[in-house]
Write a protein that binds this DNA or RNA. Structure first.
Length: 342
DNA sequence: AAACCGGGGCT
DNA sequence: AGCCCAGGTTT
């Protein structure tokens, strides 16, 4: 690995990026506050999630849960409901757990120490650094995908950014680069530069404040960086569901917190043998996740009376929900689509 | 250190 | 069809 500490320009680069940010910062709702609660929520929502995709969720979430206490007092099912469609549902459950940690371990006040923030569920080094720098002025770099991409291009680093060494490497580099007393703005500058200019594809190098110092650009090799060798394995999987309904009501059950779709609601995955002969395979839905290609068989069991539905639910531990109330539960996307199409 | 995890948007 | 995204947790 190269040693950039001998590069006399890295402080200059940090200042160039910060100056660019002063003139080109995106106007985002959470840029108007340094309230750690709001910054925390937005950082979690925007983990692995595009700004445009998560913006409405952020607005809805902080409107319903404006502070730690409100969040801690809510039921986890309602927190999940506000997460519907975002994916990585562990994030919602962890936010809820962390709100309890803040109430119990920090007297309901969001902690200011980096180590305390890192201790909270769902907060790793990136998020702890982001909150620390933005809300509390700590001189800590928040290393995210944008950071890797921008710096790997500037220095034409050809080592794998998904390797565990990359974090330490860029953390050390960033510490030399952050303008003093401006870590929060610098970290956000890297996010904006990475998403608006130094984009994964078709970067706008003509608008880049560090174009002259970017080795990848100067050597015409922008498209070769960052180097990422990790390949995503995609597994095919078949799921069975039985839609058991009568008139406007049907059966649901809450998932466990293992596998996918943690704590979301779904249809029965199995039914007693004597009902299977009355089920028809109504629909096959294909659903792509990042790591799994799902084939979902939705079988339908039509019952002949309300009392039959009630007995079915009681005997097998299912809950009954009315189609009109299904919006109040959080279903996986393909099941939500099925319900909407009823 | 490496594997795993949802969904949407983009090319 | 593959890649990416304001990463964290588990093994």
């Amino acid at each position: 690995m190269k040693n950039h500490k001998q590069n006399p320009h890295f402080i200059l680069i940090g200042n160039q990026i910060l100056k660019w940010y002063g003139q080109n910062a995106r106007e985002l709702p959470f840029r108007n506050t340094k309230n750690p609660y709001n910054i925390w929520i937005c950082e979690i929502i925007f983990q692995q999630t595009r700004i445009a995709q998560g913006m409405q969720h952020y607005e809805n979430f902080v409107a319903r849960f404006p502070d730690v206490k409100t969040l801690a007092n809510a039921h986890s099912d309602e927190v999940l409901l506000y997460w519907k469609g975002l994916g990585y549902y562990s994030r919602a459950l962890n936010i809820h757990k962390a709100s309890h940690q803040i109430m119990n371990d920090f007297g309901g006040v969001f902690p200011e120490k980096y180590e305390d923030i890192l201790y909270l569920k769902g907060i790793g080094k990136y998020t702890a650094a982001a909150v620390s720098s933005i809300c509390f002025g700590k001189q800590i770099p928040a290393i995210d995908g944008n950071f890797y991409r921008v710096l790997s291009r500037i220095y034409a680093d050809d080592f794998d950014i998904s390797s565990s060494q990359a974090y330490k490497y860029y953390e050390n580099l960033a510490l030399e680069m952050i303008p003093s007393n401006a870590a929060g703005d610098f970290n956000q500058a890297m996010m904006d530069l990475g998403s608006e200019v130094c984009k994964p594809r078709n970067p706008l190098c003509s608008e880049c404040p560090v174009q002259e110092n970017c080795i990848a650009f100067q050597t015409g090799k922008i498209s070769e960086f960052p180097v990422k060798t990790k390949k995503v394995k995609v597994e095919s999987l078949e799921l069975q569901y039985y839609f058991v309904g009568f008139q406007e009501e049907f059966l649901i059950k809450q998932r466990g917190d293992d596998f996918i779709w943690k704590k979301l609601f779904e249809f029965p995955t199995d039914i007693p043998d004597d009902f299977r002969e009355f089920s028809i395979n109504e629909k096959i839905v294909k659903h792509k996740l990042t790591h799994k290609n799902l084939v979902i068989n939705i079988n339908r069991v039509v019952l002949s009376s309300k009392s039959q539905l009630d007995k079915f639910a009681f005997d097998n531990g299912f809950s009954i929900i009315n189609k009109d109330n299904s919006q109040q539960k959080s279903f996986p996307k393909p099941l939500e689509n099925y319900i909407d199409g009823l």
